[in-house]
Design a protein around this nucleic acid. Structure first.
Length: 473
DNA sequence: GTTGAGCGTT
């Protein structure tokens, strides 16, 4: 068997690596000794330059017909910041690259660690791939003994991707590195948009035809029975993003495009059940739960909600009691959060994306979200109004609204809801109207007198906490 | 003090 001499750094003692019968050196062979190495180079005596070794299909090829020669080869490691000029590249592969680099890192679980591996040695191992933000070993609380697994987080997605695609021998044991089950898919940009103000005569084909001029449409979903909104999924999430917030006229109707998955970042490091952008779920991503049951998938509890689709479907009439759970997509057996489901017996069991309604069901405002078993936010999206973002927004009034951030008069909203027949329950409509009267006063939308918040303001303390302050000094 | 599929006291 022939060998090639390889060093990681100049001046080190070379290590001889075996080459294959066809004279190639397997990249995996190289990486088993030099984790993170992406190639080889050697000093060309004639030019005094380093010459790179051809890599194709996981094989490193000898630099000349005569083979590897007597060179001492140097490992090449990817430079993390090499690709700063990505913006100049606009072909589709560059775009894909860009999407990847935009994707965020997640903690990775490292399974099968030797008992002896420490956080230091774990970090040292992975630092050969790139910047390590965190390396931890899970230990028994009492004994301090390693449980044989740990977590690692990288500073760049490229590094993370490379780590995930390699096998790892850490402290003499083959270990597995995976995205933890406790995470959803890594955050990605949604491919799906919400299209509000649809009329019944607008077909999926119409939408597809119209929106295809912006990019490839991979899916159109129109909930049945008719509910005045639909979802359009694009192949390219950037196309989807670019359309959000716009009005588009289809068949003479002004449709409003908005995000299908408002991102409410409750936990900074939370990628739980993050919407994967529909890329892997074009046929399974409408969150429709037609049978009125929970999603069947089980698994470790997820913390829900970042990037969950937002109340985009309601059950058919008479099928109340279903809980629309979490998330966008539940692909890959992504676990479903059961924590945020409503208790049994609570009608209008829609996921609120944040908190179940307060126990006080007599609270009039809390009923609005249950109007016809649909969250008010959904109605708002139907009207092309995005629920206001922000961690506290759905706590206002207990109903997913920060009134002051509404872009419109609540009276108009009420009228529109009535117009759409979304306030079917007279009792609840009554509640709605009384709430509207309150909120109209309190947020001065009708009074239109921003400076005046006199003693008649009906804002409760809880709500005023989230009101924008009018004078900051 | 043992072990070898799993999923993280923040």
């Amino acid at each position: 068997m022939d060998f090639v001499q390889v060093v990681e750094e100049d001046g080190e003692e070379p290590i001889e690596l075996p080459i294959e019968p066809d004279k190639n050196l397997l990249l995996s062979t190289l990486q088993s000794t030099f984790p993170g190495a992406s190639g080889l180079k050697y000093l060309n005596e004639e030019t005094k330059c380093f010459r790179g070794i051809r890599l194709n299909d996981g094989k490193l090829y000898p630099p000349s017909e005569s083979g590897w020669g007597n060179h001492v080869y140097h490992c090449v490691f990817p430079k993390e910041n090499k690709r700063k000029s990505d913006d100049q590249l606009e072909n589709s592969t560059a775009k894909t690259k860009r999407m990847e680099s935009r994707a965020r890192c997640t903690d990775l679980i490292v399974l099968g660690l030797p008992w002896k591996t420490t956080e230091e040695s774990l970090r040292a191992y992975f630092e050969t791939f790139g910047e390590v933000l965190m390396a931890q070993i899970k230990k028994d609380v009492h004994s301090g003994q390693s449980k044989g697994f740990g977590f690692v987080r990288f500073g760049s997605y490229d590094v993370q991707a490379r780590v995930l695609s390699n096998r790892h021998s850490i402290d003499g044991r083959w270990c597995e590195v995976k995205v933890p089950n406790s995470k959803g898919a890594p955050n990605q940009i949604p491919c799906k948009v919400f299209v509000g103000r649809c009329t019944e005569d607008i077909t999926a084909e119409d939408l597809k035809e119209y929106f295809s001029k912006f990019g490839e449409v991979t899916d159109v979903f129109i909930p049945r029975p008719f509910r005045a909104f639909s979802f359009v999924t694009f192949l390219d999430p950037e196309v989807a993003a670019s359309l959000c917030g716009e009005d588009h006229i289809v068949k003479g109707v002004s449709l409003h495009v908005s995000s299908a998955a408002p991102k409410y970042e409750h936990h900074r490091n939370s990628y739980h059940n993050a919407n994967n952008g529909g890329r892997n779920s074009h046929h399974n991503s409408h969150n429709e739960n037609p049978h009125g049951g929970l999603f069947k998938s089980k698994g470790p509890t997820m913390h829900n909600s970042s990037g969950n689709y937002y109340a985009n479907t309601a059950p058919p009439p008479n099928e109340g009691g279903s809980a629309m759970l979490g998330g966008g997509n539940n692909t890959g057996g992504a676990p479903v959060n059961r924590e945020n489901t409503y208790p049994r017996g609570n009608r209008g069991n829609y996921m609120m994306t944040q908190q179940p309604p307060a126990a006080n069901t007599n609270n009039s405002s809390s009923n609005f979200n249950s109007s016809q078993n649909r969250p008010l936010d959904m109605h708002m999206q139907t009207l092309g109004i995005n629920p206001p973002p922000g961690p506290n927004s759905t706590q206002n009034m207990g109903m997913g609204l920060n009134l002051n951030s509404l872009p419109m008069n609540t009276a108009i909203l009420a009228a529109a809801l009535n117009q759409f027949g979304l306030l079917g329950n007279p009792e609840q409509s009554g509640n709605f109207l009384s709430w509207m009267a309150h909120s109209s006063n309190s947020n001065n939308m009708l009074a239109n007198n921003p400076g005046n918040r006199g003693p008649n303001s009906v804002n409760s303390g809880a709500n005023t906490a989230n009101q924008p302050t009018e004078a900051t000094n």
